[in-house]
Nucleic acid binder design. Structure first.
Length: 266
DNA sequence: AGAAATACCCGTACGC
DNA sequence: TGCGTACGGGTATTTC
């Protein structure tokens, strides 16, 4: 199982040191990395632009250039590396950007899921994303309104980035366990009080993940320790820390889903 | 319209 | 040992 590119692991790959450099060369190694525009336009437009800022929105890295915005989504296995300009191309390199002829920004992505956009209107890519769960402005009431507006299973609903932005499969399972909510619970049946507990749980597991430097499940990302603190994810048949009941694994919305059948009732 | 299913990927683990 | 296959993740797209 690969690493989860959650907020924390995204932040550590934002490479803020590129701010102030100018893009002087481009090498696209795998065409479909480019979500938009086409290669010719991308090449023509990005050359000569200066990097003004590096930010994050949900799981997207947002690089503000002089005229356009470069947006990168790492998906599962993507990484961003800062290398000397004469460093050799590595296996799984998808896009190389030369910065001032001294350094190269390499987008490396084994599974080819990651995508890059270059656009003058970043809102086209980011505009429909839901709120940041750790934003101080995001309240329990917001969450309650958003989940009760749908009649869906709570687990796939929480994974929907238009409803709330930033939760992946691992943290969703953990948050639902902490909140005592079964992953198949219909979202419109969740009471206001339960939504508040879920709101608190989401923020707790994300904050704990950040404190532990993210989750390293396998060989792709090795910097985190939160995998040692997971309560349900990857603990199939192991005893629930709360009640001792074996953790169950089912498939919900095509995703492996771990829960305690005693602590999380429908 | 909204919800659910599918497509996109490949290194690894596992069964025979 | 070697080969074939299932698996996992996030989101855009397609289907229901």
């Amino acid at each position: 199982m690969p690493e989860l590119p959650e907020v924390e692991t995204i932040v550590r790959r934002m490479r803020p040191e590129i701010v102030g450099t100018t893009i002087s060369g481009v090498d696209l190694r795998w065409e479909r990395t480019l979500a938009t525009p086409n290669w010719v336009t991308f090449h023509k437009n990005i050359l000569g632009q200066k990097v003004d800022a590096v930010n994050r929105r949900a799981k997207y890295i947002v690089i503000q250039l002089s005229a356009d915005t470069l947006i990168i989504h790492l998906r599962m296995s993507g990484d961003i590396l800062f290398r000397p300009v004469d460093a050799p191309v590595e296996k799984h390199d998808r896009l190389l950007l030369n910065l001032d002829d001294k350094k190269t920004l390499a987008f490396n992505d084994m599974r080819k899921f990651g995508r890059v956009w270059l656009t003058p209107t970043p809102n086209d890519v980011l505009g429909k994303l839901g709120p940041e769960p750790l934003d101080a402005a995001f309240t329990a009431d917001d969450l309650f309104k958003r989940i009760s507006a749908h009649k869906r299973q709570i687990k796939p609903l929480l994974l929907d980035q238009h409803v709330i932005a930033g939760l992946g499969n691992i943290y969703t399972d953990e948050a639902l366990h902490l909140a005592g909510l079964h992953p198949l619970t219909k979202s419109d049946t969740i009471k206001r009080s339960q939504a508040e507990i879920l709101w608190r749980s989401i923020r707790q597991v994300l904050n704990e993940g950040i404190q532990r430097n993210g989750t390293s499940i396998d060989w792709i990302y090795r910097g985190g320790q939160y995998q040692d603190y997971l309560h349900v994810y990857g603990r199939t048949d192991e005893p629930c820390f709360h009640c001792g009941t074996p953790i169950q694994k089912i498939v919900v919305g095509q995703r492996g889903t771990h829960f305690c059948p005693k602590c999380q009732k429908v």
